[in-house]
């Protein structure tokens, strides 16, 4: 059903491969739609407890496919119609989403990685906030996420200078959760995803909700939000399992319910 991406679910993990390797997986309108649909499917699919977005071939995603741009393209509408919906879909997802950045992530490809909950970088990967080099501004939530991740000062540097950020530097800045050797990249991503897929999924979703709320609500409102979140978490089967396993001194088996 997808042409520009590959999507499959295995052992609770939904794998989403950006699949235009000859174009460094650059975004077309179709690919954006397919990524959005795939994330939506994964969000609804009870079997899925973790989502991994990665790239086929040597790149992660090179951002917008510039050959798709026409002289009268309205970039504002392009964001509204094609980019914002993908980023919104990702942010609305209550399951953990991992960007497995296998190679270069430039422009909106960088933004895509930033929108995810975790960024695992291959040592060969890099981020490039390329927008400014063609006289544009970082989009798809890029600066919004950057200011949260690295603060105003560093965000300004990354957005304005647009220098290449090698994997090691990304880790230093807090943009990468881990940098992984190229040879073991696939295995470690697998392991990481599988670990997430066996955690209490509902609690992770509620934590994600709280993370979002923490940056928008007042402290008072947040505490009420948190109370509702904890009440909701406490009603899950996984919480009961966690308690039982603790009392019975065994490893809990979470089902995501």
């Amino acid at each position: 059903m997808f042409e520009t991406i590959r999507y499959n679910v295995e052992n609770g993990v939904a794998w989403l491969y950006l699949n235009r390797p000859d174009k460094l997986n650059s975004f077309t309108a179709q690919m954006l739609r397919e990524v959005k649909d795939a994330v939506k499917n994964a969000s609804k699919d009870d079997e899925v407890r973790c989502i991994v977005i990665t790239g086929e071939g040597r790149g992660f995603c090179a951002g917008q496919d510039l050959s798709e741009i026409e002289p009268n393209t309205d970039y504002g509408d392009m964001i509204r119609k094609h980019y914002a919906p993908v980023i919104k879909q990702i942010k609305a997802c209550e399951k953990p989403i991992v960007a497995a950045v296998n190679g270069v992530a430039a422009g909106a490809g960088f933004s895509l990685a930033l929108a995810c909950d975790f960024r695992l970088l291959s040592e060969k990967a890099s981020f490039v906030n390329a927008f400014v080099h063609i006289g544009l501004i970082p989009d798809s939530g890029n600066i919004y996420f950057l200011t949260q991740l690295v603060g105003q000062a560093k965000a300004a540097e990354l957005a304005i200078l647009g220098e290449k950020i090698p994997a090691g530097k990304a880790e230093e800045l807090g943009l990468a959760n881990r940098v992984i050797q190229a040879e073991t990249f696939t295995d470690e991503v697998n392991e990481f995803a599988s670990r997430l897929a066996n955690m209490p999924t509902k609690a992770i979703g509620l934590i994600k909700r709280s993370l979002k709320a923490a940056s928008t609500l007042s402290f008072e409102d947040y505490l009420e939000f948190e109370a509702q979140g904890q009440r909701t978490a406490a009603l899950t089967v996984d919480h009961q399992e966690g308690i039982n396993a603790f009392l019975e001194k065994r490893t809990p088996v979470f089902t995501g319910k």
Partner: peptide, 9 residues
């Protein structure tokens, strides 16, 4: 409110 708690709240 949290969707799960709509009726409860």
């Amino acid at each position: 409110v949290a969707p799960e708690l709509l009726m409860e709240e």
